[in-house]
Simulated assay, not measured.
Amino acid sequence: MSTKVELNCEMTCSKCEDKIRKSLDSMDDVTIKSIDIAGQQNNHRPKNGNQRIDGGGSISTFSEFSCSPYDIFNFSDDDRNYRLDCGKSVASSFDLLLERKWNQAQSIDNLFLFQFDRLKIRTTILPGKYGFVVTLNTGRGTNRRSPETINSISTPFDESKFNFNKIKPNELLFKVSRNNLTKPIVSIIINNSPIEYCSSLMVIDPADCHNQLLTKSSLEMAINLIAISGDLNLRMGFNSLGAEASVNHCHWHLYYQQERLYLQSIKTVDGHFFTDWPLPGFLFEISDNQSVDSVVESIMLLVNHVHTNHDNHSYNLFIARGLIDHEIRVFIWIRKVSFGSKNLFHINPALAELSGFFICKSNEMFNQIDEQFCVNLIKSIEIDNINEYIDLLKSN
């Protein structure tokens, strides 16, 4: 016989993490109801041809909490695919759950700050070498949460400011665990000012109140989410403090983007370094389980060097599948810091822009933007001593 777990949470389930984890350790304390999503296909995808992959994780729902119930998607190591053999996007159980939950959230009044309809968004590919993707998304300029003013790349977490423990219950789409472990558990929540289809945030262990500093566990989980997705269009990215992060609570962006990007086939010239892009950066490819640890170790080496030695440097990360072998590609750029208040009507170079995706907030901007503007914007944050980071990787 199960016993109800008493949770008194008016804002979000993340405040109840300790009781939830105890319940996971002793399953007699909570009622779990399985959900079968087999055959549930979403009709909102911009492209056709997607179908469900058999297996690929299990879903359970906490159904007796006093705050809103939520799904937990659990995946095993066997569910990860570092290289996809198919030549088209094939939705996994994770993709189907994300789409279903996100589209359900879109139907709730006043949950998003504006409604996002991918089929109505104006999108163009700029002429030129890089094929930059440009969209018109006026809501990002007029309807979004006020960004936090950042003055240091290591600003501590501040409970008094907005963080993801203060979201509305319905903003939490579901949680993700690996191998039924109780930690880390990530929350997938809506981006209430979406930048793309299924635009969401991955927040690792929200109740632990990590500031917006890349952690090993969050990087590993971001790679895992790409690996359990069968959709070639899934993207993930991270903005550090001083690199256009808006909230000082450790989170990643994830979204689907149907356009192909130049970076998905770019090549390195010196180890992991690539230069055929307006801002040189580092690229790490993952095609099997054995390469994950070394990639994570190398990226954390770069990040730790920034935080230890350079308060005038920051970093952005971007993860996507390659176009040819569909391997997982992890990009990191070390860049100049950008402190102070954001101008929400300008294009501020962050993970999306560095990936080649530019979001215009006005018709005038959308009609005037060209490749040279994009190149100059990206180049404006280039640091002078990138060789220091190249040498760091070579020495380890």
Score class of each variant (00 low, 15 high):
389 Y>C: 00
113 L>A: 11
152 S>Y: 03
309 N>V: 04
308 T>C: 12
372 Q>C: 11
129 K>V: 01
394 K>N: 14
322 G>Q: 00
23 S>W: 00
131 G>K: 00
72 I>F: 13
380 S>D: 00
192 N>I: 09
359 I>L: 14
74 N>A: 07
323 L>H: 14
375 V>T: 10
394 K>H: 15
142 T>V: 10
111 L>R: 11
17 E>S: 12
195 I>Q: 06
189 I>R: 13
180 N>G: 04
186 V>P: 06
222 A>L: 02
157 F>E: 07
84 L>N: 11
393 L>I: 05
142 T>R: 12
61 T>P: 00
316 N>P: 04
295 V>P: 01
63 S>D: 12
372 Q>T: 05
139 G>V: 09
342 K>I: 06
236 M>E: 02
70 Y>I: 13
80 R>L: 05
227 A>C: 02
181 L>N: 13
351 L>T: 10
242 G>R: 09
129 K>A: 00
323 L>A: 06
63 S>M: 14
36 D>L: 01
88 K>Y: 15
162 F>D: 11
179 N>Q: 14
93 S>R: 14
163 N>P: 06
258 Q>F: 07
62 F>K: 02
218 S>R: 05
138 T>M: 05
241 L>W: 02
216 K>P: 04
282 F>P: 00
214 L>P: 01
298 S>E: 05
85 D>Y: 08
14 S>P: 02
112 F>I: 13
292 V>C: 13
45 R>Y: 01
76 S>V: 10
137 N>W: 03
306 V>T: 00
188 I>Q: 13
371 E>A: 04
263 L>A: 09
96 L>P: 02
56 G>P: 02
121 I>A: 08
144 R>W: 12
259 E>C: 11
264 Q>K: 05
259 E>M: 10
38 A>T: 05
121 I>K: 07
175 K>L: 03
356 G>K: 03
306 V>P: 02
116 F>M: 01
48 N>M: 05
389 Y>K: 04
155 T>A: 12
24 L>W: 05
371 E>Q: 12
96 L>Y: 03
169 P>I: 01
236 M>S: 08
198 C>N: 08
33 K>G: 06
319 I>H: 13
